[in-house]
Amino acid sequence: MQDISLEQAIEVLLEHTKKIERTEEVPILEALGRVLAEDAVASFDNPPFDRSPLDGYTFASGRTKGATKENPASFAIIGEECAGDFFAEAVPAGSALRLMTGAAIPRGCDCVVRQEDVTIENGRLLVPYELHHHENYCFAGEDVKKGTLLVKKGTELTAAHLGVLASLGFGKVKVLARPRIAIASTGDELVLPGEPLQPGKIYNSNLYVLAGRLQEMGFRPEVLGILPDDVNEAAAFIDSWRGKVDLFLTTGGVSVGKKDIMHGVVKKIGTRLFWRVCIKPGAPVIAYTAGDMLGIALSGNPFASYATFELLVRQVLSKFSGRTDVCYTPVEGYLADKFPKPSYGRRFIRAHYADGVFKIPSQHDSGSLFSAAGCNALIDIPAGTGPLPAGSRVKGVLL
């Protein structure tokens, strides 16, 4: 397929993307944003015992019947219990136990009186009013009953989910494995940051943008560096990752120049799904399969590769991982600035979106990444649109 729409390209990619069914067990602190692979069910009541909701004293409420300030009920204080302690004995009739908020209420007691409401005289507790059965009393399982479904399979775990799971003793949880992703760039002109910059060379930024975006989304890519502009070497290298990764991303080598090697690479190792998507920037995208591995070769132009990653690859990542939060969000708003260029084909331009307003930077070249640093959206301009004045109503995607 060639020269297809963005929507068609996404559809083709998703047809060749299988949701990851592999699972792994991870510590609860590493589970944020992961997708739960099995139902999490409470194995005990929480709280696991009847407890006090306040600092005070506990006893049998029946002994306070008729108590007044002038004629208070009197109890012998036999000890105290803090949260985390456990008073194993039954409290005898006519006796009271001092206890703190969260402490377990012992046998023989059915209420708690506030510490501020009582007085102590000669080691005895004086209660100036009646208390009733289960007054100021928290029951075992008041928060969660044993057997309760805490978090359903397929849920993207939030901080609140982690708190619920931790409160029921889950030290680890079973989650879907992350998709295995590899990233490489092609181009003999590229060098890695930190290396000397020779004449005619440029520093590679694409690896860092894509790896950074993947890490921001909670993925852990294999960053493989720069491949030579040699079809056989590049094909052998990419093919060596077959079976090891689910998605292989490359930048560069996708147009029609002498060193656009990815066409030849795909012929050697797999089956091409499409080439060229009707968008600007980043039109010359190649998608292919090599066995069970999906490959997406993006433009080498820095902003073009970034934009097509956002528009195409994020949809694939969402299906791989089962995470809806990975997809971009459609938005509409007004242009704060004019866009003076006509759009003969469908164009996406960088912008900053806030409160229904898109602000456009002055630089739009697909080879420039600098002006994208402060942007959080792409404006979607339909093919055949003329220059847009400030105030124009436009659609876009929030990144």
Rank of each mutant, 00 (worst) to 15 (best):
P128G: 02
G169D: 14
G79M: 05
R98E: 14
M100N: 06
V91L: 05
E116H: 03
I77R: 01
L97F: 06
L176E: 04
R180E: 11
G108D: 08
R114A: 15
V118N: 00
K172N: 13
E156R: 12
E121V: 13
F86T: 10
A166M: 15
I120R: 14
E142S: 15
G79W: 05
E89G: 00
T148C: 06
L165R: 07
G123Q: 10
S167A: 01
G147S: 02
G163P: 01
P128K: 03
I78V: 11
E130A: 13
E80K: 14
K172G: 01
G123K: 04
E116T: 13
T119P: 02
G108W: 04
L131E: 03
A140D: 08
T101I: 15
D188R: 09
E142L: 11
T101C: 12
A160S: 08
F139M: 10
V175M: 10
S167K: 08
A184D: 04
G154R: 13
Y129T: 13
A184W: 15
E156T: 15
Y129Q: 14
A83S: 14
R180V: 03
V144S: 03
T186R: 08
G169W: 15
D85Y: 11
L149Y: 04
N122T: 01
G163D: 09
R178N: 13
A182Q: 04
G94R: 07
P179E: 01
L168V: 00
T186L: 12
H132T: 13
A103C: 14
G108T: 11
A166S: 15
A177P: 10
F86R: 02
E156D: 04
G123T: 06
H132E: 12
G141S: 10
L99R: 12
D85W: 11
E156M: 07
G79H: 05
L157W: 04
G141I: 03
Q115L: 14
S74K: 12
A182I: 12
G171M: 11
A76R: 15
T119L: 12
A182N: 10
E142N: 08
E135G: 03
V112N: 05
L168S: 02
I183V: 14
L168F: 01
V164Y: 00
E81Y: 03
A88V: 06
D188Y: 05
P179I: 02
V175C: 07
I181L: 01
E135Q: 15
D188L: 04
R98T: 11
P106W: 14
K153Q: 13
S167P: 00
L165I: 02
E156W: 02
I105Q: 08
G163L: 06
D188T: 07
V173R: 07
G171F: 01
E130H: 10
A177M: 11
A88D: 08
R124A: 13
Y137K: 07
N136T: 11
N122R: 09
A140N: 05
C109A: 07
V144R: 14
V151N: 04
V151Y: 08
R124H: 13
V175R: 09
H134M: 09
T186E: 09
G123C: 06
A88T: 02
P179W: 05
D117Q: 07
D110Q: 04
C82L: 13
I78F: 03
I120C: 02
T119H: 08
G84H: 12
A104P: 14
G141C: 02
T148G: 00
G108R: 05
L131N: 00
F86V: 04
T101F: 12
L149M: 06
L165N: 02
F86Y: 11
